[in-house]
Design a protein around this nucleic acid. Structure first.
Lengths: 117, 117
DNA sequence: CGATCATATCGTTACATCGCGATATGTAAA
DNA sequence: TTTACATATCGCGATGTAACGATATGATCG
C-alpha cells in the first residue's frame, strides 16, 4: 500500500539511492559535496555573490577551488543535481548549488539500513 | 589534502569512502547488502550452512536468490570485500559473507557529514 | 542592439565497468 | 587418488564514464 511518489518526503527508492551513490562515488564530486557542507568556511577567500548558507556556491568558485575545467565542474554539478543531492538557484548570471541535506540524510539511512520491507 | 592512516579505527579516508560508494552504486550489490542486514529472515527458504547471524550467507544462496551467474556474484562479493563493506568466512567448502556494520556506519556518517576535524 | 561573462552542452579519445561462459583453484567426500 | 562441488579468476564484446576543448545558450551591461 505504500506507493512511492517521486517527491515522497519519507523515503528514497532503491533506484534513486543507486543514482545518488553513483554521483557520490567519485573523488571530486564527493569532495565538492563535503565543501558544500560549510560553504561559508570553505570559500571564504572568494567574495560571495549571495548568502552562501542560503543558496550555496556558484560554479565559478567551485571551479576555482577544484582547479578543474569549467565544463567538467558544470557536468559534475548536473550529475549531482540529477541525482537530487543538490539544488540550484540562479542569482544574476551565477548559478549557485547547495546540498539537499534531506536527501543526503535519506541516503545515509539507506546505508545504515532503514529501508521499507 | 588528507593524511590517511589506512588502519585508522575511528574514521574512513575520503578515498576509502569513494571505493565503498563505488561498490554500493550498483542495483544488485546494493540489494545484496540490504539482504545481508537480515540474513536469517531473507534466506529462510534455504537451509543454512552455519549460523547466518554470525557468518552471513554463502555465495550459492546469494546466487540462488539473485538469479545472477555464479561468476557474477563471486565478482560482486569480491568488489564489496575489497571495499571493506563485507567480511568473509570459509566454512567447509562454503564461503560466507556478512556485512561490516562498523564500516557501513562510517560510510553513512561521511554522507551526513562527520569527517575528522 | 552588441559585447561580455557565467554556465551548459557537444564531440572526442581514453579508460573502466558489466555480465557472462569457460576455466582454474581449492576443499571435501568416496 | 579420483571425483564432485563451491568459489575464484580469466577473457571477451558491449556499454558506460572521465575529462577536456570547442561551442552554444542565456543573462547582464554598455
Amino acid at each position: 500500500m505504500a506507493k512511492s511518489h517521486a517527491t515522497d518526503p519519507g523515503n528514497i527508492s532503491p533506484l534513486e539511492a543507486v543514482e545518488g551513490l553513483k554521483a557520490l562515488a567519485h573523488p571530486a564530486r564527493l569532495q565538492i559535496m563535503d565543501w558544500l557542507r560549510d560553504p561559508h568556511g570553505e570559500f571564504s577567500q572568494w567574495e560571495p555573490i549571495a548568502d552562501r548558507d542560503e543558496v550555496g556556491v556558484c560554479v565559478s568558485h567551485l571551479q576555482a577551488k577544484s582547479g578543474l575545467a569549467q565544463s567538467t565542474v558544470s557536468s559534475y554539478m548536473a550529475t549531482l543535481e540529477r541525482a537530487g543531492l543538490v539544488r540550484s538557484t540562479r542569482i544574476g548570471k551565477w548559478i549557485h548549488y547547495r546540498r539537499d541535506e534531506d536527501v543526503m540524510s535519506q541516503l545515509a539511512e539507506v546505508l545504515r539500513g532503514a529501508q521499507r520491507p
